[in-house]
Design a protein around this nucleic acid. Structure first.
Lengths: 155, 155
DNA sequence: CGGTATCCCGTGTGATACTG
DNA sequence: CAGTATCACACGGGATACCG
């Protein structure tokens, strides 16, 4: 692992760039939000998001191809076959991205008296925050960190 | 504060939606990354991102209008006036969004042997992670949380 | 219900040129 | 260095229609 100055870091292979290349799309982010809200069906996505069916169809295929969602069929008794889109591990792991957006929105975009959405513990209903943590498990301030780029064999 | 079922939450006022409306743009996200990397000048952004000057000019204006960046001029002795774009508080507070994207990219998009970018403590150079925290400061698993929407007077 | 196909339009984007 | 202006074009996205 050889350190690289950020100045010389190839932006095309930067992990942030590559994440944005996959999910840096308004509709994909919103579909992810709906998935985290617990929705799984085409028509739920369509109604909740108000997106056109063709765009939705497109984005869902793309997300399945990227392995963010898994498409499965199921059938309740005496009912027709239905389909659902479930978050994969890779998709679920985006929860921190969505929660960061949520917290930032609550803090900087939502005005007093407007709707807020919060994350709470299931058991206690206490607020859950997202934050930077050291290896010892202590919270770390943004001003006390630095960014390092490395390229090399080991991952 | 009245609780609202997510099903009936107005998606137009959802904080996630409103965050995405402001920063859910490939170029804005990438400019933010460059800002967190420490770059401040028009030409640095342009070279690093490979974006056209007109688009960059546009996005920067938009970001200043949104109060994500602050444009200031400065002058070293015997030098011409220069400009820089610095992150505002609102912009800096997006660090968790960018770090989440970074971690997710390292985990799910970057392949073994490729470039990684890490966040480390300035002092100790130890890795810094981002995670969900309870009010007591303990880490919380995604599966142990739920999402709640409220609308009402108090913020 | 869960899509796909087609059309059409607006906007995002790059290339190029010009300015202080 | 730090932009703005103009143009040309591809692509995203909505509307609509159609299918199993």
């Amino acid at each position: 692992m050889k350190k690289v100055a950020l100045k010389y870091l190839d932006r095309k292979v930067c992990p942030v760039m590559r994440s944005i290349a996959e999910i840096g799309d308004k509709w994909i982010l919103l579909i992810l939000r709906e998935s985290f809200f617990g929705f799984k069906r085409f028509d739920d996505f369509q109604k909740n998001l108000g997106v056109s069916r063709s765009v939705l169809s497109n984005k869902l295929s793309k997300m399945v191809a990227l392995n963010l969602l898994e498409k499965t069929s199921y059938q309740n008794e005496n009912d027709r076959v239905r389909y659902e889109y479930k978050l994969t591990k890779k998709g679920k792991d985006l929860n921190k991205v969505v929660i960061s957006l949520l917290e930032w929105g609550n803090e900087h975009v939502v005005k007093a008296g407007e709707v807020t959405v919060k994350i709470v513990e299931k058991e206690t209903c206490e607020d859950v925050k997202i934050d930077l943590l050291s290896e010892k498990g202590e919270t770390v301030k943004w001003r006390d960190v630095k960014i390092e780029a490395s390229e090399g064999r080991a991952k």
